[in-house]
Simulated scan of single mutants.
Amino acid sequence: MTDQEVDKRLHIRTEGTIEILQSSAHYNRYEATPYSVLDELFEVYPLQKRDHIVDFGCGKGRVPIYSVYRFGCSATGIDLNGRLLQEAYENLTEFRGSQKRSRGTIEFEQTTAEKYEVQSEQNVFYFFNPFSVEVFQTVIQRILESVEQSDRQVDVVLYYPTTAFVYFLEEQTAFERIEEIPIPILSTHNEDERILIYRYN
């Protein structure tokens, strides 16, 4: 199915790329992860109901809503932009209204990623190049501080990973790469079209 068709099934609207002036040069434009990419990820890396995924730069809420739809897990979306989050809340309302049974919790929070306080139940962290490596480093540090306070296994999922993100995780942290998922067709023309998954035990 096309992204538009999946959006329609979920009763949400998350398509498009939007250039929105951010208050920080460290933050990038909104672009939703294609559903085909999420399907490739979830075929290899299915979530469990006990999982809690956090999407940094969630935009209109596609990743949190689709994750909960597929797996009944919990999800949190973080974004700096109030306009996008308003659309995320509208999508959540429409999604909830379309479901015959209750699924996992979905929450959205408007804040900078650097200031977000990672919760003890959160264990999967998703990034589609939402911001600079400087911000990424701070976020990873906050995740590790949370693990120190509440010991658990955590995974970092990078779609279309930048060299800087990869270098930081592999050379300056104890995260270990556990999976590399090339995106069929797209990856033959662009080696960056892949998903990398890192784990910290």
Rank of each mutant, 00 (worst) to 15 (best):
Tyr159Gly: 09
Gly104Asn: 02
Glu121Gly: 05
Gln4Pro: 00
Asn81Glu: 03
Thr163Tyr: 06
Tyr45Pro: 07
Lys60Tyr: 06
Pro34Gly: 06
Ile143Gly: 03
Tyr198Ala: 06
Gln48Pro: 08
Cys73Val: 00
Pro184Thr: 08
Lys49Met: 10
Thr138His: 15
Phe71Asp: 02
Ser132Val: 05
Ile65Gly: 03
Met1His: 14
Arg177Asn: 11
Leu85Ile: 13
Gln149Pro: 10
Tyr200Cys: 10
Glu87Tyr: 14
Thr111Ala: 09
Arg13Trp: 04
Glu117Ile: 03
Ile195Gln: 03
Leu80Arg: 11
Gln48Phe: 10
Val156Gln: 04
Val139Gln: 08
Arg199Phe: 13
Ile195Phe: 03
Ile195Glu: 05
Gln110Gly: 02
His52Lys: 12
Tyr116Val: 01
Ile65Pro: 01
Ser146Cys: 12
Arg199Lys: 13
Asn81Lys: 02
His189Asn: 15
Thr173Val: 01
Val37Leu: 07
Thr105Glu: 14
Pro182Lys: 06
Met1Cys: 14
Asp7Thr: 05
Tyr160Trp: 11
Pro161Asp: 00
Phe42Glu: 08
Gly57Met: 01
Glu179Gly: 02
Tyr167Gly: 04
Lys115Gly: 05
Leu158Gln: 07
Gln86Asn: 15
Gly77Arg: 01
Tyr159Pro: 04
Val68Glu: 00
Pro130Ile: 04
Glu145Lys: 15
Ile140Asn: 05
His11Leu: 01
Ala25Arg: 14
Ile106Gly: 00
Ser187Trp: 09
Val54Lys: 00
Val124Phe: 00
Tyr69His: 13
Glu90Val: 07
Gly104His: 06
Gln48Glu: 15
Met1Asp: 14
Glu117His: 04
Gln137Ile: 10
Glu134Asn: 15
Pro182Trp: 05
Glu121Trp: 12
Glu90Gln: 15
